[in-house]
Simulated assay, not measured.
Amino acid sequence: MAKQKLLIGFHAVTARLRQDAAGVTDVYVESARRDRRMQDFIRLAESLNVRLHPVDAERLRGMAGTDRHQGVVARAEDVALALNLDELLDGIEGTPLLLVLDGVTDPHNLGACLRVADGAGAHAVIAPKDRSVGLNTTVAKVASGAAETIPYITVTNLARTLRELAGTRHLGDRHCRRHGKNALRRGFQGPGCPGDGRRRRGMRRLTRETCDELVGIPMAGGVESLNVSVASGVCLYEAVRQRRLKR
């Protein structure tokens, strides 16, 4: 029997239904919720012949482990994504776009990073096995379906993995755009776009020393730094912009 996982919330469940409804075995919906959003969701699930189970809020809370389930929980088969970097790179034609996170321990941050990586068309998110959050129901909910589409690959030695990739860090040695395109040419048109995961410490020393290029995002206001998912979005979409211009 295929391994199953829980999907929580409208976004995560709807994204999986549209991607692979056959892999969704059961959907549980809050019977007391009758608003338009729920009715639209039920119609979608019924049109895809997915088994629906009306249950009370207490049952959903027990399944999800939280009150923030929006009235929707689903059981679905695990999606077969690349499990390691070699497997991933073997399946990519052209230049890969990878988001590398160092020290992201908050599941909400990881979920948001997966979502922005999916939106930018990244091939995977990579993180070290130590001092990083793993995939869980909170990550999947915040990712709004991206946890089902973007491989999340953990590596034992991040510095070794980064040898051929470029790096970014808060207040790095070069600023985006300020020093011209050459400052970002290798990092944003090359094989990767790593992102910083710890606001105050930045990337670890070995990670920084392994990067071909260090760049930073200029901060023109009063705040000292951006959230890791926001910074990841800035860098990923700059990478996409430069690659399109190059083509």
Rank of each mutant, 00 (worst) to 15 (best):
V27H: 06
V215W: 15
G192H: 07
R199Y: 09
Q39V: 13
L98Q: 07
R160V: 04
S232V: 02
R33D: 10
V50M: 09
S229G: 04
L114P: 09
P151L: 08
S132Y: 13
A146G: 05
Q242S: 04
D118W: 06
A124V: 05
E46W: 06
L7V: 07
E87T: 10
T149A: 08
A183C: 02
P191Y: 02
K129C: 07
P128S: 08
P194L: 09
L171S: 08
G221L: 01
G187S: 14
C193E: 01
L97Y: 00
I42C: 08
L245P: 00
L6V: 00
A112T: 02
A80T: 11
M203T: 12
A12Y: 11
R177Q: 05
R199A: 15
P191K: 05
G233S: 03
H108V: 05
R169I: 15
S225C: 15
G187V: 10
Y152Q: 01
L206Q: 10
G167H: 11
R204T: 14
H179K: 05
D26E: 03
V125A: 06
V29F: 14
V72D: 01
T156W: 05
T154Y: 06
L89M: 08
I8T: 01
A76Y: 13
E77D: 09
E164D: 13
G172M: 06
M1P: 09
G94C: 06
F188R: 06
L206K: 07
A183R: 00
L98E: 05
S232E: 02
A220M: 10
S229C: 07
E238C: 00
R68P: 11
R34C: 08
A2S: 05
R204N: 15
R174W: 14
L83A: 09
R68S: 10
L98G: 04
A117P: 00
D67Q: 15
R208I: 15
G222K: 14
M219Y: 06
G192T: 11
